[in-house]
Computed example of a mutant assay.
Amino acid sequence: MLLSNASLPLPLNQEGKEVNYVGRFAPSPTGPLHFGSLITAVASYCEAHAHQGSWLVRIEDTDIPRIYPGSEAHILRAIDAFEFDPDTDIIFQKDRLDIYEDVIQQLHAQGLVYACQCTRKMLGSNHIYQGTCRDLQLDLAHQAIRVKVSDQVIQFTDPIQGTHQSNLKFDLGDFVLKRRDGIINYQLAVVVDDHLQGITHVVRGADLLDNTERQIWLGQLLGYAPLQYMHLPLAMNDQGQKLSKQNMAEALDLSQPSQLLQRALKALHQPEVELDRPARMLQQAVAQWSSTYIPHQTMLEGIYT
């Protein structure tokens, strides 16, 4: 287990009491927030507070070369504009790189990771890593670091997406925790910080569904408590593409937070809320929130164009 001094103070609910539900919104600053991001923020916020729990915000910015100029500032402005009220201070993963390095060393001491010298050109089109470097005992410096997987079925049940399972050995192979250029992989950082922040429930988009088995596996290796996962259907544009930064989705108009909140709740098939200042709308949304209303599908076509 990680040293206790790496942990963060566990959050309390808005009444200052300990909680059994801790959720989070964890955007990556590779571009400004778009409407799909808002759907995730609203759903995670309402689900947490409907369970009398806490809701945290974390900026997932370990991939420093991909940070889009001004996007972190836009995220923080959006949190304020929509009057979300995180229950702890916002943390930035780029400030916590030494923690992730310590975890890699911990896993290495247990023989659970190894250095890999394979390049994309060497691997070709095969997306399942065959363990080429697993027994070479290469020095960790200046190499990619992979975690070992086993012949084991990992299964979880998502309240929206149903039951999913994967045998990582045959579906993926040993996967990367740290790239050769030194960038910490998303899979490692998210698992470590969810644990250290006391996260119990993860509400996020269905585009991250395939990451879940990898994160469950890492959590098991590190002895972390299991999490509950809920993957929301994705907002699509009129070309049938998911709203994303890669598809140049329009940035949220922070001058119209109340109107956008109404649209987000409608997209999630929640009861209508009165147009008001965002904090009051969120309060009403929480009071009548039910995740059972969310469509049990992976895509919400034509939600926002």
Rank of each mutant, 00 (worst) to 15 (best):
D158T: 05
I104M: 11
D63R: 06
C46H: 09
R146C: 03
L172Y: 02
L177D: 07
S37T: 15
E301G: 00
A285V: 05
A251M: 10
V147Q: 03
P69G: 11
A6C: 12
A287C: 09
P295Y: 03
L123Q: 15
G198D: 10
E72T: 14
R77N: 14
G198L: 11
A267P: 02
T305S: 09
N211C: 10
L265N: 01
G240A: 08
H231T: 12
I67D: 05
F170S: 10
A189D: 10
Q246N: 14
P257C: 10
M236L: 12
H127G: 00
S125E: 11
K94N: 13
L282A: 00
Q143N: 15
R77T: 10
S291Q: 10
L3Y: 05
H51Q: 12
A285T: 01
G198I: 09
Q93E: 09
I90V: 14
R120K: 14
Y68K: 15
H51G: 04
K148M: 05
S54M: 07
S290G: 08
R179M: 11
T163M: 13
H164G: 11
F82V: 03
Q110I: 00
S255C: 07
N5Y: 10
L275M: 10
Y114V: 06
L282M: 01
T30M: 05
Q215G: 04
V149K: 02
L188R: 06
L12R: 08
I294D: 00
F35E: 03
I128N: 13
D85I: 08
T200Q: 06
V19Y: 02
D95P: 01
S150Y: 12
C46F: 13
G31D: 11
M1T: 10
L168S: 01
I39V: 15
L38C: 12
Q161N: 10
M299W: 09
Q241L: 10
I99A: 11
Y45S: 08
Q52A: 12
R58Q: 12
K178G: 03
P65M: 13
Q256G: 01
L112M: 15
D158Q: 09
I39D: 01
L107S: 08
V176Y: 06
P278W: 02
P233N: 09
A81P: 05
I199M: 05
F156I: 06
Y68G: 09
L265A: 02
I183K: 03
V42Y: 01
C118A: 11
A206Y: 03
G302V: 03
L222V: 04
D194N: 14
S37R: 02
Q155A: 12
V286E: 01
L172M: 13
A287F: 02
V149C: 09
L234I: 13
D102G: 14
S258C: 04
Q241K: 09
C46L: 09
T305Q: 11
S255H: 03
Y304V: 06
E72N: 02
A141G: 05
V273L: 07
L300M: 13
L10Q: 13
I91N: 00
A109G: 12
I64E: 06
T163N: 12
A43F: 11
G111C: 09
S166K: 14
G223C: 08
G36K: 05
R204D: 06
T30P: 04
D171W: 04
L232N: 00
Q187R: 11
L218T: 05
I67F: 02
L234F: 06
